[in-house]
Design a protein around this nucleic acid. Structure first.
Length: 569
RNA sequence: CGGGGCGUGGCGCAGUCUGGUAGCGCGCAUGGUUUGGGACCAUGAGGUCGGAGGUUCAAAUCCUCUCGCCCCGACCA
């Protein structure tokens, strides 16, 4: 490709609103252009990279046994009402009406559609296992798009769905996908962390996310420095510090005028937060929920939502709490009736806690579960945070921002039961198909690669996904000889099958070199009067500082090794 | 949805407070001089100042409404 013909110019300035490196560089190089909030056009360079990533994904999916197909973007809304996810997605669904007034959605994902397909074609255990995938544009009306390609409303995504006869089969399919994802990340030059993840309101059991550690990431990962544990903060657990065992003391009411928060209570009584129990109120699908948790811990709303199996969850207003007959600032589970109580299991780790007295200006000392109060649900709903203990080894946990590039989960039979995807087993019994689903955001992966592979000059593409392998850069001046040599090498490189970007512009050396660095093509070849004098070509690898002069008849044979040396130094 | 900010040639920005014929840098075009790290000189093209309504002799600037975009939060299989 001659650079003079390439559509899309590099920019010298980018909008101040582009804040993260990948967004700035994508714009600066001229790989994307924004059309609307969270909607982008891909210019030739950006599209080339995207297609290379797709190719890698395709190869790994095929190797794992996947078969590619294509599914519709336009889907009847009834399918989504049938599965119940119409409600789960809520406003996130793009919906529209056709000319007859039928309501359609722009597919945010394709479980419903593929099950419809499966229902018709899979009737017997002989048809299983099966893995089907598609790479296509999906739509989600995100409340807020952000960070260039990190979070968009129209995006390229690969989704593979696995169909098995039983849980053992699902485990096999799932593990194949995890392995494929590892390979995809490796081939794209992306260091990743596979972490435990929440599977959402209608998800299944096991779920892992493939995270790329980056400041620009929108997720927070909690992990053990010894490598024993890593999880999305939404899902993470931590060892809750146990308190020393002590004899249960009698309940005592104490005056605590002006004390409302745990902070104030702990200061007032000069006790650690962990000696108190905190009351938090939520409004969950039209119902008030009283949450009790040890004072040193916070509530993980995602765990709570999963526990309650509700759609809408928010903090209750003060008015709602008072209407239920509770005293804000001094609410108590002791003596409570008529309100659902969800407790974190931390309330069993310790004794003689201070709790509210449900009476303004008073608290109770020495409250103990279950002696003094009951709960409806007792489970883990605590928010794990850095500094708390690793659930495996107790070492203090660390936290980092990360970009979620892939997500795999075991769906089980939730969808196949809801939507009637059944098969007949060997004994002729009808059973639900056991499903898994596995997604990768292609554009987001591209952004993640840039986040991890750039320097102050520009992008440093891993050769596997670089838009071109070689940047051929004559610094000609008046020398016609330089130009004809460059043309000759350009032809040879093409004949040998290299992807070459030939900078045939009559720009100054500074401009060309800076563009070469900005674009991040792995190998830069410079031809100038200076190199011509010595019958050579100057070679520079984008990720190294030094250059070397090679005799020009050796360059082509040395190129593959030079390209392959990425990541080894 | 809550808070903050921004819409002015292709890109980046100033001008708005205090109304008076729209400016700068980059890029682009033409000619010339340059050529190993974003050159220089000259000339030139390009803008209904997001949109609608209003105030005024006069609106990018003041008022009202509206649309779009960004950031933080909420939210997010």
């Amino acid at each position: 490709m001659r650079l003079s013909n390439l559509f899309g110019k590099t920019q010298r300035q980018v909008p101040a609103e582009a804040e993260i490196p990948s967004h700035q560089l994508l714009l600066k190089v001229g790989m994307i252009q924004q059309v609307a909030a969270g909607v982008y056009s891909y210019l030739p360079l950006g599209w080339r990279v995207l297609r290379k990533i797709e190719t890698i994904i395709r190869e790994e999916m095929d190797t794992a046994g996947g078969q590619e197909l294509m599914l519709p973007v336009l889907q009847p809304i009834e399918l989504w009402e049938e599965s119940g996810r119409h409600r789960a997605f809520g406003e996130g669904l793009f919906t529209l009406k056709d000319r007859r007034g039928r309501r359609l959605v722009l597919g945010p994902t394709h479980e419903e559609v593929i099950i419809q397909l499966i229902r018709q074609h899979v009737r017997s255990y002989r048809d299983l296992p099966l893995m089907l995938y598609q790479i296509q544009t999906k739509f989600r009306d995100e409340p807020r798009s952000r960070g260039g390609l990190i979070r968009v409303r129209e995006f390229h995504m690969k989704d593979l769905y696995s169909f098995d006869a039983d849980e053992d089969g699902l485990d096999i399919s799932y593990n194949k996908m995890v392995e494929a994802y590892r390979r995809i990340c490796q081939r794209c030059g992306l260091p990743f962390l596979a972490v435990e993840a929440d599977s959402g309101a209608i998800g299944g059991k096991d779920s892992q996310e493939f995270m790329v550690i980056a400041e620009a990431g929108e997720d927070e990962v909690i992990y053990c420095p010894q490598g024993h544990y890593a999880a999305n903060k939404e899902k993470a657990q931590s060892a809750k510090a146990p308190l020393p065992a002590e004899e249960l003391l009698p309940l005592v009411e104490i005056a605590t005028t002006g004390v409302g928060t745990i902070e104030e209570l702990a200061n007032f009584l000069v006790i650690p937060h962990s000696r108190t129990l905190k009351a938090v109120f939520y409004w969950a699908d039209e119902e008030l929920v009283f949450v009790v948790i040890r004072g040193d811990l916070g509530v993980n709303e995602i765990k709570l939502r999963n526990t309650l199996k509700c759609f809408d969850l928010r903090l209750a207003t003060e008015a709602e709490v008072m209407t239920a007959g509770l005293v804000v600032g001094s609410a108590s589970p002791v003596g409570l009736a008529g309100v659902k109580v969800v407790a974190d299991d931390s309330i069993t780790m310790g004794a003689n806690f201070v709790v509210g007295a449900n009476k303004p200006g008073y608290h109770l000392k020495n409250a103990n579960y279950p002696r003094d109060f009951g709960v409806d649900i007792l489970t883990d709903i605590a928010l794990a945070e850095a500094g708390q203990g690793c659930p495996k080894c107790g070492e203090p946990l660390l936290s980092t921002r990360a970009i979620e590039v892939g997500h795999v989960f075991k769906l089980g039979t939730v969808y196949s039961e809801n939507l009637g995807a059944l098969y007949l087993d060997r004994e002729g019994r009808q059973r639900p198909i056991v499903m898994g689903c596995y997604g990768i955001g292609v554009g987001r992966l591209m952004a993640a690669v840039i986040e991890r592979n750039h320097d102050p000059k520009g992008i440093v593409w891993p050769p596997s996904i670089a838009p071109f392998q070689v940047y051929l850069c004559p610094l000609a001046g008046d020398e016609q000889q330089v130009v004809s040599k460059a043309e000759e090498i350009y032809r040879q490189l093409q004949v040998e099958g290299f992807e070459v970007l030939y900078d045939d512009r009559s720009e100054t050396p500074g401009v060309k070199m800076n563009d070469a660095d900005l674009l991040g093509i792995p190998i830069r070849l410079v031809i100038s009067p200076r190199t011509l004098e010595r019958n050579g070509v100057e070679v520079k690898r984008r990720w190294e500082k030094s250059t070397e002069l090679l005799p020009w008849d050796e360059v082509i044979q040395r190129l593959p090794a030079l390209i392959a040396s990425f990541g080894s130094g």
